Amino acid sequence: MGVIADFTVGAEDFDLGAPTEGGTELNIEVEPIVPASDQVFPYVWVTGEYESFEEGMEACEYAEHYEFVEQLGERRLYRITWNEGIHDLLACFVEANGTILRARGGNGWRFTVRFPDDASVSKFHGMCQERDIHLDLHRLTHVEEGADSAADEFGLTPEQREALMHAVKTGYFSIPRQSTLDDIAEQFDISNQAASERIRRATEKVLRQALVDQVDALVEHP
């Protein structure tokens, strides 16, 4: 059984081209990969003050080289080549066999990582403690092996994901609406009420995960 860990790391513990102090509009999103010894975080998407990111990379002792690849709208894609002394946090990912599902940063970093089992999570946590890397854990979710990674990331049950995907494909959320709860209920042979609950719960899970930073801020400072 795999484990999905959702946690935050401060900018002071992982300064990948991001400022350690507020005031700079910069967002970095890692292209998800399975870490390997020489291929940790090879691609990142940057939005905001590109100059700040490039200055940060120039000063980053762990980066051997970086290069601009392409620009899509306001986002720029960069490729990073790491030197042999990769960052302690990245080394922890590699040693604990963590698969990065999502990572985004700016003034601090938010990670969603899949580990093979509880022992791997414990190993990762222990390695971070040894390196004085502080983790603020938000959620641990156990998932069945072979389960869909997208469903894992958002914490959806197979039934919720199936219903939500069907709702999206058939235009339930379109304006004007192209399908109804009756259509969804008929598709899955469930009651209208069950269809409504399934869609609403699935939608809430996706929104909470997608907007997790904002939701946490609202909870802490209503």
Rank of each mutant, 00 (worst) to 15 (best):
P32K: 09
A91G: 04
W109L: 06
L72Y: 08
E61Q: 09
P116V: 08
G98D: 04
Y66E: 05
T47A: 11
C92R: 02
R102P: 00
A96H: 03
H87F: 12
R76P: 00
R102M: 04
A91S: 12
E84R: 13
G98T: 08
I28Q: 00
T81V: 15
V34P: 00
M57H: 09
R104T: 12
D38F: 12
R114C: 00
E54C: 09
T24E: 10
D38R: 11
V30I: 15
F124C: 02
A119S: 15
H65V: 04
V113L: 03
G73I: 15
G22V: 14
E31Q: 10
N97K: 14
G48S: 07
G73M: 13
V44N: 01
V40I: 14
S120R: 04
I86E: 06
I100H: 05
E55F: 10
S37W: 09
E25S: 10
A119Y: 12
V40M: 07
D117S: 15
F111S: 00
Q71P: 01
L89Q: 08
L101Q: 11
W82N: 05
G98M: 02
E25Q: 09
E95Q: 14
I86D: 04
T47R: 14
G48L: 08
P42F: 07
V46E: 07
V94Y: 14
H65N: 11
E29N: 05
H125F: 13
E74G: 04
T99C: 02
A63W: 02
E49K: 11
N27M: 08
V30Q: 02
D88N: 03
L26T: 00
R79L: 06
T81R: 15
Q39N: 14
G48Q: 07
D88K: 08
E70H: 04
F115I: 06
E61F: 06
E49T: 13
E61H: 08
G108E: 13
G56Y: 07
F41T: 15
P42D: 05
S120Q: 08
P116K: 06
L101D: 04
A63E: 03
H125V: 15
